[in-house]
Design a protein around this nucleic acid. Structure first.
Length: 275
DNA sequence: AAGAGACCCTGGATGC
DNA sequence: TGCATCCAGGGTCTCT
């Protein structure tokens, strides 16, 4: 469910609460939640360990510990990290952590796609191969051009590749393409310099704005205090099939690319494949 | 190399 | 009301 802005929102909420606390107890309730590190190893590594920082890499949440290794959490589609909410009776509670000062952190995940593990060798491929952070200074228009050069793959698919750019998901990929007036089916290698610059700006703009509004809640996303994000109303094309384009008034279309919805304005976003 | 589709799950919305 | 179908913000895998 969460993309970069939602994960960043969660990290910002957890950071002041978790930093400096000691993990007194960790429990893991579903085998799919701990695919890489056995629960016994996790419990042993986490017990009486102190959290020194909380950060984000792509869509991963990193819990930095005084005694290494660190722990990473990926929420995938439906995962939630909830603070001090009584969730023991929640049938979808997959793990929980009791910390010093009576803090409880619950990992609730209906679909059990989410997972966590210790960041130790061998580091799983998904984390190890993460691409550039789109809000960092190393993500320039030039860098985007290099990443897309000669690619015979649709822009939408390239934007979703975490090993190229880390953190963009299905919602913000559609939004960025609309802002940049790029048709999502255009091959990455066929974007003109002007379009690459526009797309670079659009990606950073939409991610920054969504972070400012604490993410998008369509159904599942919740901040650690249980409240939803506020970017949902600001979405320009995502989920707006049949509504008028906010720029030109033409009806917004939904197409399916690689099994995922893309929303676009057929008037503003010309398919420029082949020039 | 790259695209299409299946798959991992559960639940909500929609249609008949 | 009940049942079937479709859909979902992620990511990996196989087959072509």
């Amino acid at each position: 469910m969460p993309e970069l802005p939602e994960v960043e929102t969660i990290v910002r909420a957890l950071r002041p609460v978790l930093t400096g606390k000691t993990i007194l107890q960790a429990e893991f309730l579903h085998p799919r939640t701990t695919p890489h590190t056995p629960p016994a190893r996790l419990k042993e590594a986490l017990k009486n360990n102190r959290i020194v920082a909380v950060s984000r890499r792509g869509k991963y949440i990193l819990v930095h510990l005084e005694n290494k290794p660190d722990m990473v959490v990926h929420l995938r589609m439906s995962g939630k990290l909830l603070l001090n909410k009584e969730s023991l009776s929640d049938p979808h509670l997959r793990a929980f952590f009791r910390l010093s000062e009576n803090i409880v952190l619950n990992f609730v995940d209906t679909r059990t796609f989410g997972f966590l593990y210790l960041l130790e060798e061998p580091i799983p491929e998904g984390f190890r191969s993460l691409g550039v952070e789109p809000l960092s200074s190393s993500f320039s228009a030039k860098r985007l051009a290099e990443l897309f050069r000669n690619r015979k793959s649709p822009v939408k698919a390239l934007l979703l590749r975490q090993d190229l750019i880390a953190g963009i998901g299905n919602i913000y990929a559609s939004e960025a393409c609309w802002i940049a007036k790029v048709h999502p089916a255009t091959f990455g290698g066929e974007l003109e310099e002007k379009q690459l610059k526009a797309l670079h700006r659009a990606v950073r703009k939409v991610l920054r704005q969504a972070v400012d509004l604490m993410g998008t809640t369509l159904n599942d996303f919740r901040r650690p205090d249980g409240t939803p994000g506020e970017y949902g109303n600001a979405l320009l094309v995502y989920g707006r099939k049949g509504e008028p384009c906010p720029r030109c008034g033409q009806t917004i279309e939904r197409i399916v690319q690689n099994g995922r919805s893309s929303f676009l304005c057929p008037n503003c976003q010309h398919e420029t494949r082949g020039g």
